[in-house]
Design a protein around this nucleic acid. Structure first.
Lengths: 197, 197
DNA sequence: CCCGTTAATTATCTTTTGTTAACCGCCCCG
DNA sequence: CGGGGCGGTTAACAAAAGATAATTAACGGG
């Protein structure tokens, strides 16, 4: 049952994957459930772990010298989460990643997956495509900061993923958008009065 | 002389490249010089061209319905430039890319390079690494929008690439930072008075 | 050498956001 | 059932940014 989920995951992720690689991957993949608030990667850790989110949501946030928390990234079901400090920059994470809800993940060591799938064409392809997708998403977010107002960014965010409103406190959405919770509250008010007028 | 430059470029870019692939690549690569203001990719084009900038600078900008120009990206010597709409999203470019200075580039069709280098392990590796770098850069820029004030972003930008001040009009830097030229002018003034006080 | 163009600064006013703190509602836990 | 804590809203004020326009500075071409 559990291994079936992992098998489906890998088959799906790497179409054309050499079946011989499967057992190694599966035994290296841990299924875990994070309780709300439980930490996936802590600031300062150098943890090249990669996780596929089956269900739930993980928030990546930064704490500055004054103790102010800023949400940098939100990831949810069917997405992959990892510390980009560790994996891209080989440095300790400047952020903490924790579950906002009860979150079920498939977890694997990034270096291990690289080893196991070295020279596997299906993997090369999938890995490349995956990073391309991440890049496209990132560029889109950069665009939103350059081209849109905070209000527009907010409307776009809830249009793209409406259940964020139910699942994530507004204060996290605010800092994700680059504004303060107070400001987001005012924006919400402005939107309502615009709509009902 | 010209082919030597191209050879050096490819050898450098794809360490371990199969030499047999070189002639095809070289003949597919065009060396071009863009005059200041000359357009590399025009809004609406679906042009999967990729260029390596030998010398000079290319600006990617967006024009909204009111005719307001916003700089989305600046790329300079030793960097690669392409329309991400065309290459990542297979759609016509929403942006125009043009040279700010006399700019010398090596230009090649993205699909062609993919064909020529299919199944070339050195290429897979280089391509992956390249996209990873782009992703790291993008994430860093997102961070700057979420974690920094416009003033901090400006100081960071000129610290990272000081000659932008001489090479790029402030108004382009302003919109790149997500603010208006007037606002950047005020920020510059604030910085000076802080410093001389 | 002056004119025209463009960029940058400055001024004025409006709007938005940040900051801080008060307040309210809600939920949980003792 | 009564605090406490937390999230969201609101208020009040300060700071910053946007919009618009006028002014100044820089520069190249006739």
């Amino acid at each position: 049952m559990l291994d079936a989920a992992k098998t489906a995951f890998y088959i799906n992720l790497f179409k054309g994957l050499d079946p011989a690689a499967l057992p190694g991957l599966i035994s290296a993949t841990r299924q875990r459930v994070l309780e709300p608030g439980e930490i996936f990667i802590r600031e300062g850790e150098n943890s090249p772990r990669l996780a596929y989110i089956n269900e739930g949501m993980i928030r990546c946030y930064h704490v500055n010298e004054k103790g102010i928390e800023t949400t940098v990234l939100l990831r949810w079901e069917q997405q992959i989460i990892a510390s980009y400090d560790s994996i891209l920059l080989q440095q300790p994470s400047r952020f903490t990643y924790h579950a906002l809800e009860k979150t079920s993940i498939l977890e694997i060591d990034y270096n291990l997956i690289q080893q196991l799938l070295a020279n596997n064409p299906a993997f090369e392809q999938a890995r490349y495509q995956f990073v391309l997708d991440m890049l496209a998403q990132s560029l889109e977010r950069i665009e939103s900061f350059v081209l849109q107002t905070p209000e527009e960014r907010y409307l776009q965010l809830i249009a793209d993923k409406p259940d964020l409103l139910q699942r994530v406190p507004d204060k996290h959405l605010a800092t994700l958008l680059g504004i303060t919770p107070v400001s987001l509250s005012r924006i919400r008010k402005r939107i309502i009065t615009k709509h009902t007028r």
